[in-house]
């Protein structure tokens, strides 16, 4: 369990430093189980910070998302550091960005949180629908969530609400941090991301039927891209006009091309935080694609993303004995 007082204390200390601009963390949302990212510019702002199992959002995205307004004459760019509260996967995302030279380590202050898994917002909102008042969720030592609603206490087994990606998480502890809150989590059991095998064994046509159904539904809002901490290209290949790789019209062909390329561009980079699937407004199981690639990459090249910032990117290196059984 993360000690809230400790979190706030540490955040305050970091925000007070002269070389830190702000710290990104979580605070309570506007209703129900909602949580929103919070930005602390001053120690007072840090008072609102919380951490609970519903804090599923990957805050690493804010390290690459900031858009600065054009500078006025005589104004100087604020080059101070940004502080971020990171869970295991968030920290891995940052390691990965640093590895790709998208960020500099010295521009960041990382508050690491050993993560016991997060609650899938869709699941908890289904279990307790229509909650207007803000609700606290606490995890106890017996792998249960304690949820207080209108004076009534509900105990829910952890497994029922835990995010699917968290069930198969191998790295709950942040690999990179400046301060670590609480003790490292021990990994007890890891469930295989079983959906992949199920589909993998099916016939080609059945696989296509499955994905066709999902791709047809895509509305191309690009929330998957924007929520992903690793989709930080200045100009996405989906937005380029010359050449226009993917047309803007929404139909099966273009939707499939978009979803294939989104997943492919995360090969050897995806850190399995599950944000893309979480934000998708039309419930496309995007993590199945990401996990599939992750598994292939592990098997073929023995490569895991986001663990070592000195490692070279997957597609930027090779081994002479890479598998080539598919080559004619």
């Amino acid at each position: 369990m993360v000690d809230l007082k400790n979190l706030i204390e540490i955040t305050k200390k970091i925000v007070s430093r002269e070389d830190v601009r702000y710290v990104v963390g979580y605070k309570k949302g506007t209703y129900g189980f909602q949580i929103m990212p919070a930005f602390a510019y001053t120690p007072e702002d840090a008072e609102d910070f919380i951490y609970s199992p519903v804090c599923s959002k990957n805050l690493a995205v804010y390290t690459i998302l900031e858009e600065k307004l054009p500078l006025k004459r005589g104004e100087e760019e604020d080059k101070r550091k940004i502080g971020v509260v990171v869970k295991g996967c968030d920290s891995r995302a940052i390691v990965q960005i640093i590895q790709e030279k998208g960020l500099k380590r010295e521009d960041l202050v990382l508050i690491g949180i050993p993560c016991k898994g997060v609650i899938e917002p869709k699941k908890i909102e289904k279990m307790f629908p229509n909650q207007t008042d803000l609700i606290d969720v606490i995890e106890n030592d017996n792998s249960e969530y304690i949820i207080n609603i209108g004076g009534k206490t509900h105990k829910v087994p952890k497994n029922e609400l835990l995010s699917d990606v968290c069930k198969s998480c191998e790295f709950p502890n942040p690999p990179l941090y400046d301060v670590l809150l609480g003790e490292e989590v021990e990994i007890t059991e890891i469930e295989e991301f079983s959906k992949i095998d199920e589909l993998d064994e099916k016939h080609t046509e059945d696989k296509w039927e499955y994905w066709k159904r999902h791709f047809e539904r895509c509305i191309r809002c690009y929330a998957c891209r924007e929520a992903c901490p690793l989709c930080y290209c200045k100009e996405c290949m989906a937005d380029t006009l010359n050449p226009q790789w993917i047309r803007r019209s929404v139909n099966l062909s273009e939707n499939a091309a978009w979803n294939i390329m989104r997943a492919y561009h995360l090969a050897g980079r995806c850190v399995s935080c599950g944000e893309c699937e979480r934000v998708c407004p039309v419930n496309i199981p995007l993590m199945e694609l990401n996990k599939k690639i992750e598994r292939d990459v592990k098997k073929m090249f023995d490569y895991t993303s986001g663990l070592d910032e000195e490692e070279k990117p997957l597609f930027g290196m090779f081994k002479p004995d890479d598998p080539e059984d598919f080559i004619l």
Partner: peptide, 24 residues
């Protein structure tokens, strides 16, 4: 600050009506 810049709010909205024209 916390907006991630996705199009969910506009695409799901019953009154948002902006469009783009493209030649294919």
């Amino acid at each position: 600050m916390r907006c991630i810049g996705c199009g969910i709010c506009t695409y799901l909205c019953p009154t948002c009506h902006c469009f783009d024209m493209q030649d294919e």
